[in-house]
Write a protein that binds this DNA or RNA. Structure first.
Length: 467
RNA sequence: GCGCCGGUAGCUCAAUUGGCAGAGCAUUUGACUCUUAAUCAACAGGUUCCGGGUUCAAGUCCCGGCCGGCGCACCA
């Protein structure tokens, strides 16, 4: 079947609804428009036909009459899901439905499959995720969630640009997977005869751009981590990372809370969030508490990175956590915080001053060299962002990498590897800089009110079908 | 990776203890000049996820596999 290559579209359903809200029942506007979209419903009644058509802005009724509609019999036999382009006058029917009274029309594309039950839609998860195009057609909640994600991305970019951050892109094919602790995906470049890894974070590249003189940079892009899949993890996900020269982690916390609150305001029109039947507010400022404070409160005694390792191990053991031989006091404190506090942090909060042991890229705390100027924000019981004053001492960075290498040798397959190029970059001089990483999918879940990360990803990673 | 649950018509779902595989919507045909999930009538629609097994008889019970949901583990 040959269908048109273009359509002279000049009106949207949503705009027509507001423009012609004044038409009374049975009134004709005298204005002809060209609308296009997909047929959602069709009600034929002898020599009349009423179709509900949807475009990107909403739905509008198409009103066809045998007496005045071109090829009326064919129109009445169109299928749900077909794309049509219609020319006709804007009218309101006697029963009060704003309509385009079809004069002429064209079939723009035929739907050879139906898109689910017209009332119940599609509910099968496998079908919804593997054929999101059908899910989008059938389910308003899918359209809403994915649209909110898109609006969120726009808001994030605009707010970063407004704060004089420059958007950059860094390599996804990396010879060394670094910048985070995670198992990578491996791939191979034939012409270079080299193994590569899909990036697990853009962090080190971005700081090299700061070394190069770009004082504020951000990247909004995909990273890949070869780990489990569940309601909060997709193997590929989107991260916002940004770096600002001359800032420290306190400046970055202030930027973070303003950014997140601003994004909520842009997308939802409010900073007040209702998530899974519980409320919280993104309105700044968010409280700041140190990891040691929160852990101490949870175990009802003072603990810190200076608490004897054996005692921290005992506290962990009482809570069912097995302590690995390579763990020092810092790792133990962090584990204790995670098991006792993380899920309880419902309202947005910054947890600060992470142990140096688990923060190989963060600058040591000015008040305690065993800690770093690092923070993570939490909301709804989960990590939302991670940031710190960046370690810019190449000697200390080499020591930190070497400690990571020891962990790797001891069997930690998520420890970082030594990145000589990065150390060399620091030797050229990284100014005092603060960095931030925000899990965009996690934030999208909160903004869209979704409990499953797959609902905010258009095409989530699924196991390929076999057999 | 482990555990629990699920997979029946294009879609949404039924099917008693193991006893003829069904309905609504969609599709097809017909009626109908103001419908709103239109209505009414009729026809058609099946590898019950796949492969074995038990049984006179399996959608149903058993074993293996595939895919998904939820939980756990992993995710500093």
């Amino acid at each position: 079947m040959t269908t048109p290559y273009t359509f002279a579209h000049n009106a949207f359903a949503g705009a027509l609804r507001s423009t012609y809200a004044h038409l009374s029942d049975g009134e004709e506007s005298g204005v002809a428009v060209n609308v296009a979209g997909r047929l959602m419903l069709m009600r034929t009644q002898g020599k009349l036909a009423f179709a509900t058509m949807r475009d990107s802005s909403g739905e509008i009724q198409l009103f066809a009459l045998a007496a005045t509609t071109q090829r009326f019999e064919e129109f009445a036999k169109l299928h749900l899901g077909d794309w049509v382009g219609v020319s006709g006058e804007v009218v309101r029917t006697k029963r009060g439905e704003l309509s385009v009274k079809v004069a002429s029309w064209q079939l723009l594309a035929e739907a050879l499959h139906n898109f689910g039950d017209k009332w119940a839609g599609i509910s099968d998860f496998d079908l919804r995720y593997r054929h999101r195009e059908a899910d989008l057609w059938a389910n308003a909640s899918t359209r809403t969630s994915l649209t909110r994600r898109s609006e969120m991305l726009r808001s994030v970019r605009e707010r970063c640009w407004a704060a004089n951050f420059m958007e950059v892109e860094t390599p996804m094919l990396n010879a060394i997977p670094t910048g985070a602790a995670a198992r990578p995906f491996r791939t191979f470049h034939n012409a270079l005869n080299s193994e590569f890894f899909l990036r697990i974070a853009p962090e080190l590249w971005l700081k090299r751009l700061v070394v190069g003189g770009y004082e504020r940079v951000f990247e909004l892009g995909r990273v890949f981590r070869n780990e489990g899949v569940d309601t909060r993890h997709n193997p590929e996900f989107t991260i916002l990372e940004l770096y600002a020269a001359y800032w420290n982690y306190e400046d970055m916390m202030a930027f973070t809370e303003e950014l997140v609150a601003g994004v909520a305001l842009d997308v939802l029109g409010t900073t007040e969030i209702s998530y899974l039947d519980r409320d919280f507010s993104f309105a700044a400022p968010w409280p700041r508490r140190t990891m040691a404070e929160l852990a101490s409160q949870a175990v009802d005694e003072d603990v810190s990175v200076h608490t004897p390792l054996a005692h921290l191990a005992q506290l962990l053991g009482e809570r069912g956590v097995e302590v690995h031989v390579s763990w020092g006091a810092g790792r133990c404190l962090a584990e204790l915080f995670e098991v006792t506090c993380e899920e309880t942090l419902w309202n947005p909060i910054f947890v600060t001053d992470f142990p140096v042991e688990i923060s190989p890229l963060a600058r040591r705390h000015q008040k305690d060299p065993e800690l770093t100027e690092r923070f993570e924000s939490y909301a709804a019981g989960r990590e939302l962002s991670n940031g710190f004053s960046e370690l810019n001492d190449p000697v200390d960075q080499r020591n930190r990498f070497e400690e990571q290498a020891r962990l790797a040798a001891a069997g930690d397959d998520e420890a970082m590897l030594i990145d000589e190029d990065y150390i060399k970059a620091l030797e050229w001089g990284l100014p005092p800089t603060a960095g931030l990483g925000v899990g965009i999918d996690r934030l999208a879940m909160l903004i869209a009110g979704e409990a499953n990360i797959r609902e905010v990803i258009a095409f989530p990673t699924l196991k390929p079908l076999r057999d």
